[in-house]
Amino acid sequence: MDAKDVQIIRVLQENGRLSNQELSEKVNLSPSPCLRRLRLLEKQGVIKGYTALVDQKAYGLPLTVFIQVRLERHNTEAVRTFEQRVKMIPEIMDCYITTGGSDYLLRVVCQDLDAYEFFVRETLHNVPGIASIDTSFAYSVVKQGHVFPEISETQ
């Protein structure tokens, strides 16, 4: 990827609905080379897809919960089972493998505290191999980014 590819990506992260004509104007390329670069970025998997950014509260899921999970065992089967189950649970928006006191950090969205309690009791507790669950509730969003920072070249 060169600087022009990075520019194309940043412009699309700001507004993924731009036409190729609009995109090419914003990155100072003619439409054909711009489209070629875009298709190559898609083919290489740098651009994975396009989606709508939806207001979580307006959608009806105002509660954001961060859950730190520690597993009982760390063998291949326990990890594989946990990760496969997590991928099937729609309330879990993100799952990160972490260092420190927990093994995973989950970002979960729910309607309210009752829905979260139901989620923990009926869904999360049924995932085998969990040793502990530590919950933090987000009560406000200060920043939620969707555009990557510029890449600086280190010396």
Rank of each mutant, 00 (worst) to 15 (best):
Y139P: 11
P33C: 01
N20K: 05
G129C: 00
V120D: 13
S132W: 12
C34M: 00
Y59N: 05
R37T: 03
Q144Y: 15
L105M: 15
E91S: 14
V65C: 11
D112F: 02
I9K: 04
H125I: 04
G49L: 05
E14L: 12
I47R: 01
A58Q: 15
V46S: 02
L38R: 00
T99A: 11
G129F: 00
L105R: 02
V69P: 06
R80H: 09
Q7N: 12
A3M: 07
F148E: 08
N20P: 01
S140G: 08
P149S: 09
G45P: 05
C110Q: 13
L124C: 03
K43P: 13
E77Q: 11
V127C: 11
V54L: 12
L40C: 11
H74E: 09
G145I: 01
T76I: 10
K143E: 15
L71W: 07
T81S: 08
I8V: 08
V147H: 14
P31W: 00
V79F: 07
L124D: 04
M1H: 05
S102N: 05
I97R: 07
I92E: 01
Q155G: 03
Q144G: 08
Q155R: 04
I89R: 02
D55W: 14
I92F: 03
S152T: 09
V27T: 00
L63S: 14
S132P: 14
E77C: 01
Q68L: 12
R85C: 01
R37P: 02
N28F: 05
L40Y: 10
E42V: 11
K87S: 04
Q111L: 13
A115C: 11
E77K: 07
E117M: 14
L53Y: 10
Q7H: 06
Q84W: 03
A138W: 13
L29I: 02
F137H: 12
P149N: 11
N126I: 01
N28C: 03
P149D: 14
L12D: 10
D2V: 00
S136M: 13
E150R: 15
F82M: 04
K87E: 08
F148W: 06
K48H: 02
P90S: 04
D55Q: 11
R39H: 04
R107H: 08
F82H: 10
A3I: 04
Y50D: 12
M93S: 13
P62Q: 15
K4H: 03
L12Y: 11
M88R: 08
C110T: 12
G60K: 06
N28Y: 07
F66V: 14
G100S: 10
F66M: 05
L23D: 00
H125Y: 09
S102M: 07
N126P: 00
F148I: 11
V86S: 10
K57S: 11
S132G: 09
D94T: 08
R73W: 05
V109C: 10
E83D: 07
L105T: 13
T123A: 00
G145V: 03
V127K: 01
N20S: 03
L106R: 02
F137A: 13
E14C: 06
E14T: 05
M93C: 11
R36I: 03
D94L: 09
